[in-house]
Simulated scan of single mutants.
Amino acid sequence: MKVIKNSLSTIFMALCAIVLMPAQEAMAQNLDVPYVPTRQVVVDAMLDIANVSENDVIYDLGCGDGRIVVTAAKKHGATGTGVDINPERIAEANANAREANVTDKVRFVEGNLFEVDLSEATVVSLYLLPKVNMQLRPKLLQLKPGTRIVSHAFDMGDWEPDQTIEVDGSTIHFWTVPERK
């Protein structure tokens, strides 16, 4: 009888996995932004243009495998948080932080980047699509004046960047949150 219960339990779990897998794949396909890793040369340039230092708290929205936050901690001494909706990316980011020995400086949060509290941020990094950047723009403009925003590839509409550079075929935009009027 015990063998039958174990077999039924195994069959039930397998069926659940088969039923849930297409739903998970559909969710992944409906993410606002596809996962495309930022090349390390671009990561380094993003952190340099934002002048990241050990005094900074960086938030990477749509962090993927965590390479921006991990690099900010390892090379610049910053602390940081990466946010991504995909649990696989969060697991990867945590593994990369362990490998780089920066788990005391970084954390990764599975969640919606529109819902995360950015009030501690001194730097926010993005590699999102133009539509998503525009949706985030009001939230970013509410951050503390002087907060630095750096985006790989995509701009913020008519919010003119303080600086735009080209690095190895990639565009990087940089803004500083202005004083409120």
Score class of each variant (00 low, 15 high):
Gly64Cys: 11
Ile68Trp: 02
Val69His: 07
Thr71Tyr: 07
Ala72Ile: 08
Lys74Ser: 14
Lys74Leu: 14
Lys75Ala: 15
Lys75Glu: 15
His76Leu: 05
Gly77Pro: 05
Gly77Trp: 05
Gly77Phe: 14
Gly77Val: 11
Gly77Asp: 08
Gly77Gln: 09
Gly80Phe: 10
Gly80His: 10
Gly80Ser: 10
Gly82Glu: 09
Val83Trp: 00
Ile85His: 04
Pro87Arg: 09
Glu88Ser: 14
Glu88Tyr: 08
Glu88Phe: 05
Glu88Gln: 12
Arg89Phe: 07
Ile90Arg: 01
Ala91Lys: 15
Ala91His: 08
Ala91Leu: 09
Glu92Ala: 15
Glu92His: 15
Asn94Thr: 05
Ala95Asp: 06
Ala95Ile: 05
Ala95Asn: 07
Ala95Cys: 03
Ala97Lys: 00
Ala97Cys: 02
Ala97Asn: 02
Ala97Leu: 01
Arg98Pro: 00
Arg98Thr: 11
Glu99Leu: 09
Glu99His: 07
Ala100Ile: 04
Asn101Pro: 00
Val102Ala: 05
Thr103Phe: 01
Val106Met: 03
Val106Ile: 07
Val106Lys: 01
Val109His: 03
Glu110Gly: 00
Gly111Gln: 04
Gly111Ser: 04
Asn112Met: 06
Asn112Gly: 05
Phe114Asn: 04
Val116Arg: 02
Asp117Thr: 09
Asp117Arg: 11
Ser119Met: 12
Ala121Arg: 07
Leu126Tyr: 06
Leu126Asp: 01
Tyr127Ile: 03
Leu128Phe: 12
Pro130Ala: 10
Val132Met: 03
Asn133His: 13
Asn133Cys: 07
Met134Ala: 13
Met134Thr: 06
Met134Trp: 03
Met134His: 11
Gln135Trp: 02
Gln135Asp: 12
Gln135Glu: 15
Leu136Arg: 03
Arg137Ala: 15
Arg137Thr: 13
Arg137Trp: 12
Pro138Gly: 12
Lys139Pro: 00
Lys139Glu: 06
Lys139Phe: 03
Leu140Gly: 03
Leu141Ile: 05
Gln142Arg: 15
Gln142Gly: 06
Leu143Lys: 02
Pro145Trp: 13
